[in-house]
């Protein structure tokens, strides 16, 4: 099992307090964490950052989570980046749309701290 320490995680959400909470949780789990608050910034950051996983909010002003996910899936350099959607939209259709746009996992707000950490670790293990 690879160490979490080498894994880079990018958190994207327009709610500063949620970003803050996730940052605490992921750093606590040993990941290297970067944050941003909208889709446009996220797209700018991923190219250089090449994160192993991106926690992505769906409903954001400007570019939403689905567009960011599609952008990542179209970049060959980013084919190792896992996507985890984090959203308040919880209907089965929403989930389907999320997976269709290329997400590895999908978590509905409000989330359980342990669950989200476990889920992130699971996704990273399957991929690597």
């Amino acid at each position: 099992m690879m160490s979490n320490a080498s894994k880079i995680i990018l958190i994207v959400d327009d709610e500063p307090n949620i970003v803050l909470a996730l940052k605490y949780l992921m750093e606590d789990a040993g990941f290297v964490v970067h944050c941003c608050y909208d889709g446009e910034t996220a797209i700018e950051m991923v190219t250089n950052l090449l994160p192993d996983l991106i926690i992505l909010d769906v409903m954001m002003p400007g570019k939403d989570g689905y567009s960011v996910a599609k952008y990542i899936r179209n970049q060959s350099t980013l084919d190792k980046t896992a996507i985890l959607f984090l959203t308040a939209k919880g209907t089965p259709q929403d989930k389907m749309e999320g997976y269709d746009s290329g997400a590895e996992s999908y978590i509905v707000k409000p989330f359980d701290n342990d669950e989200i950490v476990t889920r992130v670790q699971e996704v990273l293990q399957i991929l690597f």
């Binding site: 307090n17 909470a21 996730l22 949780l25 606590d28 308040a88 707000k109 409000p110 989330f111 359980d112």
Partner: peptide, 22 residues
């Protein structure tokens, strides 16, 4: 409205859980 309510609850729940567990 439910979406708008979930957002603060998400933060509240997460921080409260952290305070409880750690």
């Amino acid at each position: 409205v439910t979406h708008e309510l979930r957002t603060p609850i998400t933060s509240i729940r997460s921080f409260a859980q952290m305070m409880e567990k750690k």
